[in-house]
Amino acid sequence: MRFQAKRCGVQFSPPSIILIYQQLDTNKVRKRIIPVRNFSKYSDYNMAAERLKNHPRHKDYLENVSQGQLEKLHIILRDHLQGFSLEHSLASFHLDTDEDLNKLGDDELARKKGQMDELFEKNRKHKDDPDFVYDLEVDFSKPTAERCSWDEESEDDF
């Protein structure tokens, strides 16, 4: 890896992804402006993010920027093109652990999942990792497990 991404953001006009990164051989911090082309309010943010991630001129710089993060930036761009405010976009990413996600539509649910993907990808073990164990087993059975507070109310339901 030659570049360490520091921060990644979005600019509305002209539509671009902004990347602040460190050049690892010189330790210099630089800014890269990546124009987002052919992206309309009807575009598929998934595909656009993937295209960017694999773009021959940019992919080295974006190596440690997750697909999820790039998707999010494209969603914000698309929301803007559709006339939504930045506040609206940011709120739609917010994960409220009490919210019933069964009630959401596809697009809103995808945003929440995109948010969850950050931790998922961080903790993920890939099958090509040297320490990958396919049938990893851990025994958590404990004689004195604390009772879960989630069980305390409405015990009768169960």
Binding site: R124, K125, D135, E146
Partner: peptide, 26 residues
């Protein structure tokens, strides 16, 4: 470390798992 009691009465087996790191999935 916590115990989740849903299904205990019905005798349902319980698993702690992670799809991310693979714990107990297989």
């Amino acid at each position: 470390q916590r115990s989740f009691n849903f299904g205990k009465k019905q005798g349902l087996p319980f698993y702690f798992v992670s799809a991310a790191d693979g714990t107990n999935v297989v």
